[in-house]
Design a protein around this nucleic acid. Structure first.
Length: 204
DNA sequence: GTCATGATACAG
DNA sequence: TGTATCATGACC
């Protein structure tokens, strides 16, 4: 598989969010290749997007990486217990990012089950199998993405997004984003994208 | 459906 | 010091 280049991410987060669908998130964990196909994303457009951490160019220790160059991981802790995985879009100085909301497991499922449930894949029921990666906090657990990965360059090394050899056909649905009730008019922006009919789409 | 969990940011 | 948040699981 071909790694996506810096140029891929050097566009608006809306474009990057749409084009990340169908691509493969790869993380080498303990020498094991853990891979998920990206099936749901959300774009956060920065200074003029009330739902974004970087709204009004708010710059903190947490979101610092959003202000840097594209193609880097922005991983933050939410509600004390979970992590959320984003990839920075646009050139340095434009703090945009794409939230990865759900994946379809492709490889390393045994490792995923171990990381998320501390048990073997064969001991997982149907709901647990879907639950491996059908939400932003869940996929971070299954792919061992933590705040340690914050600021990682996604264009090289052992944590990256790659293109499949053959693109499968799919339809993209765009709708409003999840759990941003605080964001006034931004609530209504159709900046959530997912692959129509995929069973790993997060609920809500 | 409700509620506890608790890192991070920010207002006071 | 209190309140809110790009979520989830355990409960009812």
């Amino acid at each position: 598989m071909r790694k996506l280049t810096r140029e891929f991410y050097n566009r608006t987060s809306l474009d990057v969010a749409k084009d990340l669908l169908g691509k493969y998130l790869v993380h080498i964990v303990d020498g094991v290749e853990v891979i998920g196909r990206i099936v749901e994303t959300e774009a956060y457009m920065g200074p003029f997007d009330k739902a974004a951490h970087s709204y009004n160019n708010r710059r903190t220790k947490r979101n610092e990486v959003m202000f840097g160059p594209p193609g880097f991981a922005y991983v933050f802790a939410i509600y004390g217990m979970y992590s959320c995985m984003n990839i920075v879009a646009e050139e340095a100085g434009k703090p945009q990012a794409v939230l990865i909301r759900s994946l379809e497991p492709v490889a390393g499922l045994e490792k995923m089950a171990e990381l998320r449930y501390e048990k073997s894949l064969s001991d997982c029921n149907k709901k647990e199998l879907t639950g491996l990666t059908n939400g932003p906090g869940k996929l971070c657990q299954s792919m061992h993405i933590t705040r340690i990965n914050n600021g990682t360059d996604m264009c090289g090394g052992s944590f990256y997004v790659a293109e499949g050899l053959e693109e499968q056909e799919f339809q993209v649905v765009s709708t409003t984003r999840v759990n941003i009730d605080y964001a006034d008019e931004a609530i209504h922006y159709p900046w959530r994208f997912f692959i129509k009919g995929n069973k790993y789409i997060s609920q809500k």
